[in-house]
Nucleic acid binder design. Sequence first.
DNA 1: TTTAGTACCTTGTATCACATAGTACTAAAT
DNA 2: ATTTAGTACTATGTGATACAAGGTACTAAA
Lengths: 107, 107
Amino acid sequence: MRKGVLELCILAIIARNEEVYASNILEQLKDAKLIVVEGTLYPLLTRLKNEGLLSYRWEESKSGPPRKYYKTTCLGERLLNELTTGWQELVDAVDKLMSENYNQKEQ
Amino acid sequence: MRKGVLELCILAIIARNEEVYASNILEQLKDAKLIVVEGTLYPLLTRLKNEGLLSYRWEESKSGPPRKYYKTTCLGERLLNELTTGWQELVDAVDKLMSENYNQKEQ
DNA sequence: TTTAGTACCTTGTATCACATAGTACTAAAT
DNA sequence: ATTTAGTACTATGTGATACAAGGTACTAAA
């Protein structure tokens, strides 16, 4: 049932950009009305990196501390595809359930 | 982010039937390709009942132990509406994120 | 040298959903 | 008559998810 929606969103955001850093991802999530807090995102990024789904490089910034620029690995792309399919299936299933107006009584 | 999808599905199933009991709900979830196990459903039903979202009555069965027939309360209907809206918003947000092909670099 | 802004990290906690095991009732099989 | 199978509900323990809250560290402006 649990489908890792947030994981999907984050992989999608990273995949569609050349490279992004965490605060950047937070902004893009916010733009899409998906509110996520730092305490959720950072551990998740670390997990995805440890699982080989993401890679990153450090880059100095002129306006603050250095940033970790993430991009998806080959494995990450593959998971993104799988999660996308799973998400679509969930949406279809719930939509089906919600649209049916069946009135089953005793069988 | 957390949207209680399963809660939504179960409320929807109970609302669209006159009355249903747990095993019945499991079947309908299965029909919709939403696989859920007993150990997930029963505690959730109890929680929803304790929160005043569901009510039930016992009914004897000729083919086994007695059944708890659930139906939604007024409060349950209201939550169903809210969860439905929330779900639709989540689907829209994710779809938007997935369909956009924007390629933002350094800003 | 303090304050504000940006960026990353950690710890603790609540909730969700599963796995597993158990109780209790009826009906059919031995 | 007692065991076995099927149905239905319940309880306990566990892992994963996401949040709250607080902390570190860098730069630039007041």
